[in-house]
């Protein structure tokens, strides 16, 4: 979803009950990387996160899950959990990379409780209420 006020894109994550919502502001190329994966678009050439997945696939490193661990005002934190040769690794990442990789790997995305608590959903609801239908366009519109 495009945020015309901040000239950025918002990735909206929801929990399974659709009760909690977590918006994450990302740049255009990051949003595009997530959007392409969501829409199962196979680009003619591997995009950066497809390349990232090929890199991991080459040695059977598996993405188990990704966790959004913290959201500060301008710095977002996530961990990519991977299984490689019977060991588990948790590697620091931006949420946008973690999400783009998780979707391509069919891995679940989690958010820590503290992140959900920190996020004032009310503020977002209000913000969403102000959006016009044309704001919900395609990425490049």
């Amino acid at each position: 979803m495009f945020d015309p006020y901040n000239n950025a894109y918002i990735v909206v994550l929801r929990d399974e009950d659709q009760a909690e919502m977590l918006p994450i502001w990302v740049g255009k190329s990051e949003a595009s990387a997530i959007s392409l994966a969501l829409e199962h678009v196979a680009p003619p050439r591997p995009m950066t996160h497809d390349f990232m997945k090929s890199f991991l696939d080459a040695y059977n490193a598996k993405v188990i899950s990704t966790v959004i661990t913290d959201l500060n005002e301008h710095t977002y934190f996530a961990k990519v959990h991977l299984m490689y040769e019977d060991s588990e690794y948790a590697i620091d990442s931006r949420p946008s990379d973690a999400i783009a990789l998780a979707i391509r790997s069919d891995a679940p995305i989690f958010a820590s409780d503290s992140v959900i608590r920190k996020q004032s959903s009310e503020e977002l609801e209000q913000w969403l209420g102000n959006l016009k239908p044309e704001d919900f366009g395609k990425l490049d519109s």
């Binding site: 990232m52 890199f55 040695y59 690794y89 590697i91 990442s93 931006r94 990379d97």
Partner: peptide, 19 residues
């Protein structure tokens, strides 16, 4: 960069797994 960018992340995967 303050946070790892996409190619830094690939590099970090390589370093963790010895690739």
């Amino acid at each position: 960069p303050p946070r790892p960018m996409s190619h830094d992340l690939i590099k970090n995967f390589g370093e963790h797994f010895g690739i």
